[in-house]
């Protein structure tokens, strides 16, 4: 009897822990599938009856969603690819060359608020006429992607035994070849983890696009925010847009939860 009671108590505590997350996302889903009448009803309507896709159609037809989606893909894709190209070798160089000071610089960069980079970069882009361009956003998003990729790669390369590379070099491999053909394949899980986290943080970033994005170069988060401020508030389309913005990230979380958990514990401080 006592065991049963403690089991029920435990199940209850799991329920209490998980329900805030479930409720907010379900409410988001509910808002996005209801018509405007139900969305402004009081008491609130919980289950869309009948569910409507009008809000989603509205998002694509009236709000240029496809353009902003493409912008987000370009900015995040560019920043993650450049970040990997530059950051993976750097992680190797720091791990093997024991460049402690450089590692600390990377850590400080992760702790500094994103806004602090924004004023000088804004002036710089203004001078070079790049404000409002995708290029400016890709460059700025490197502030997010490079530190996290480097930081995670340091950890992974440190766990690759040096002896294997030493053996390759004794067989006549250059340092580059030892990196390319021995260390890099072994650190592949780290590349996946670093790439996923860099993608998520870059995709979620809001402030860079608010300041540097032009009318046609905005990424999704700031585009959705702008539709809140400058148009009549209508909850259905807004909830649909919000859900679409965060959907890729949520799917990635479900599909790659092992990698994400590993990466976050290994030093993925959040961005911003």
């Amino acid at each position: 009897m006592k065991r049963l009671a403690s089991k029920i108590g435990f199940a209850l505590s799991v329920f209490v822990l998980v329900s805030p997350a479930v409720l907010v996302f379900l409410w988001m889903l509910s808002l996005s599938f209801k018509n405007e009448l139900d969305n402004t009803a009081f008491p609130p309507v919980f289950i869309p009856n009948p569910p409507t896709l009008a809000n989603y159609l509205d998002v694509f037809e009236k709000n240029n969603f496809a353009l902003y989606l493409w912008n987000s893909i370009l900015v995040t894709g560019g920043a993650v690819l450049i970040g990997l190209g530059v950051g993976v070798p750097a992680g190797y160089g720091i791990a093997r060359g024991k460049a402690t000071k450089f590692a600390i610089l990377i850590l400080v960069a992760r702790m500094t608020p994103a806004l602090s980079y924004l004023i000088p970069l804004f002036l710089l882009f203004q001078m070079t006429g790049l404000v409002g361009s995708i290029t400016a956003l890709v460059i700025t998003h490197l502030v997010i992607t490079i530190p996290i990729i480097v930081w995670i790669m340091i950890g992974y390369f440190e766990n690759v035994p040096m002896e294997l590379e030493d053996a390759a070099r004794i067989d006549g491999a250059t340092t580059w070849q030892a990196f390319r053909h021995v260390a890099l394949p072994l650190a592949r899980p780290g590349i996946v983890v670093g790439g996923i986290l860099a993608f998520i943080f870059s995709w979620n970033n809001f402030i860079f696009s608010v300041v540097l994005g032009g009318k046609n170069s905005r990424t999704l988060p700031s585009a959705v925010y702008n539709s809140l401020t400058f148009e009549q508030i209508s909850w259905g389309p807004l909830a649909a847009a919000a859900l679409l913005v965060t959907l890729p990230v949520l799917l990635l979380t479900v599909l790659a939860q092992r990698e994400i958990v590993a990466g976050l514990s290994a030093g993925g401080l959040k961005d911003g």
């Binding site: 822990l17 805030p20 996302f25 009081f42 909830a239």
Partner: peptide, 29 residues
């Protein structure tokens, strides 16, 4: 599965969840 659900808030796009909270905080509706 439950752990993944629990972790979702921190992965979700902050702007998106902030918009939903804003609607939930509406004083009348």
């Amino acid at each position: 599965l439950l752990r993944t659900i629990f972790v979702m808030p921190m992965m979700a796009t902050p702007v998106a969840v902030a918009l939903v909270w804003t609607m939930m905080f509406h004083p009348q509706l």
